[in-house]
Design a protein around this nucleic acid. Structure first.
Lengths: 195, 195
DNA sequence: ACCGTTTTTCACCGAAAGGTGTAAAATGGC
DNA sequence: GCCATTTTACACCTTTCGGTGAAAAACGGT
């Protein structure tokens, strides 16, 4: 029917996510995106309309991947205390890697002006924070059910929020260049109430 | 000797800080800075060399003001448990205000590419995080000395780092649009170990 | 009144930004 | 083989970007 696509759509999306992770929305130019995706800008625009469209897609791609990788354990039906400990420890180790130094695209974006200017962006950031909180709430609920923890419903919500804040702080501090030992201490104290 | 200055230097600096708070480094143009400071770009350049110079000055101005306002109590000689509680509660209330929605210039900057590209920027961000940790460490040390708390030296450091992370998370979540009640819960749990 | 010095103002620069028009290239259907 | 359709490639547009040259304006010293 028509000319077949030559480029790898998945690789292009990954490239866009990577570019935005490194430089943010404002500082990533179309030339940067062309280099990162291997696509001509005309193709990017045919698919996503404009730069913001490319960015929104990258936000969604990142959320999907990050959720699968870092929230999957917490969102699982059988998640419990062990999964909470495991997840936060993952971030400690990650902080020492280049990937950790890039931070989280959603958390990074929350500090960009675009998250205030465009509701679609701000909403995704808020939704991601809410999802993180919900994931920890799920694990806490199970932990209580299994008898690993004693908490009221209100207490569970409070702790879920605190763990979410720790999760976010880990991403932000990691990008800020804070060393692994510092993050180790942060997580150790944050996990204390679960002991 | 020469023509006297007509503009208010302090107001101009405050304007620059405000502009960078709202739009970050990359997305703030010289035209924005002219509007925010009331100065012609030529004057900005005569004083600070280039846009980066203006930004570095704004970072320093912000740190000085933010430290005086939010770390002053913690850094005081007589700071203790009460000051820790008071400081974190301040951020909870601040989150409901427009000022809170702007976040912290240093924390916001940590996700900008410029903080990775220019060592002068990255160093200021790291130094600010370290200063926050030190402020909490000071208050914790006093609290132990007075008998309000029981902690080893290592325990104090751990808790100082955790409080620093909570402090930073409060700034970031506040900018991310998280509501006051959520932040209230975060801080409540974070302060639990001090009870 | 004049001079040296500094501030102020404004016009201007090349480069890079985001975005688009258009035609060649590559297919399946007829 | 030709057509309709879609992808690809490249040149090009306007606007805005960060940054600068140079002259006018406002003083104090003499």
């Amino acid at each position: 029917m028509a000319r077949p696509r030559e480029h790898d759509a998945q690789a292009a999306r990954d490239g866009a996510v990577q570019a935005f992770l490194q430089r943010g929305f404002a500082a990533t130019s179309l030339a940067d995106l062309e280099a990162a995706t291997g696509l001509d800008r005309r193709q990017l625009y045919n698919e996503h309309g404009d730069k913001m469209g490319v960015f929104l897609q990258a936000l969604d791609d990142f959320e999907q991947r990050a959720s699968a990788r870092f929230l999957g354990a917490l969102e699982a039906r059988e998640a419990g205390k062990a999964e909470i400990v495991e997840t936060l420890n993952t971030f400690v180790e990650l902080s020492a890697t280049e990937e950790g130094r890039l931070g989280c695209l959603l958390c990074n974006t929350s500090r960009e002006p675009v998250s205030r200017d465009d509701a679609r962006v701000g909403d995704r950031v808020s939704a991601f924070f809410a999802r993180i909180e919900k994931a920890y709430a799920n694990a806490l609920r199970n932990a209580v059910k299994v008898g690993d923890l004693e908490l009221t419903a209100a207490g569970r919500r409070r702790h879920a929020r605190h763990l979410m804040a720790t999760h976010v702080a880990a991403c932000v501090l990691s990008r800020g260049g804070v060393d692994r030992k510092t993050l180790r201490d942060v997580v150790t104290v944050a996990l204390q109430p679960l002991r």
